[in-house]
Nucleic acid binder design. Sequence first.
DNA 1: AGCTTCGCCTGCTTGC
DNA 2: TGCAAGCAGGCGAAGC
Length: 270
Amino acid sequence: MPELPEVETIVRGLRAPLVERTVTNARIRHRALYRRGSLTLRHLIDRKIESVERIGKNAMLRFSPSGLLVINLGMTGNLLVCRVDESPPGRNPKHLHVRIGLDHDLEIRYYDPRRFGHFYVAEQCDFATELNIGPDPFEADRRYLRAILEHRGAPIKALLLDQRILSGIGNIYADETLYHARVAPLNPGEAVARRAGTLLTSARAILHRAIEHGGSTLRDYRRHDGSRGAYQRFHAVYGREGSGCQRCGTAIRKIVVAGRGTHFCPRCQK
DNA sequence: AGCTTCGCCTGCTTGC
DNA sequence: TGCAAGCAGGCGAAGC
């Protein structure tokens, strides 16, 4: 489940091999991989990759003279760059859904077992309205978050997962952020609005440290070169139900919030 | 409008 | 051992 740290890691790895490359051809196996309103990948042929960026949990390529490609990796999406005739180890060809041919005999490959990912091609795009991407925790400030939380009654866990409010946080880092901030996941937004600054500080600390470790690899996620992230070793609550809280020893509990498995310490998160 | 639930999708785990 | 059911969840759509 690639979240901000995983996508940031992938994007950093793809930048050097991709910038200045020109698209020569493109094949996509399922039209359903396009997000609603997207142009086709063919629109990008003969355009040159100008930059490789991260927007929330999405990888984005900007092209010259114009155009952009936003890739959402869903839960199990994988991006890599390789030679056209190469078959990377550990990747099942039946999950290869998109190939974008480049000059220098390179190509971008998109593997995705569950096909929850989406491609979006456009000349330009308003991320907030067209793609539901708000500021990420490094861009947002305390006042912004507080103003939104103040009049929301949904559990803070659900609000942290809402990409329109803050982008980049998924299930793992929502739980880790709430633990770090000592905020209980079922607290309504309005009840924790005062703690918006703490939440942002915690999110940044968690995300920053995860990026330093190349993200978390649970099963499918791999870095652009096929290696695994290491941050899963530092998870304080995610996937640790039943074991002791690192701060107080109380057993970590797992409940369902907003349809997601939610892990927290019932004693030190209030 | 805000909140919750559902469905997409398939590999892995669990239970009989 | 083998098979079916259950579980995982990002995100958009539907329902309330």
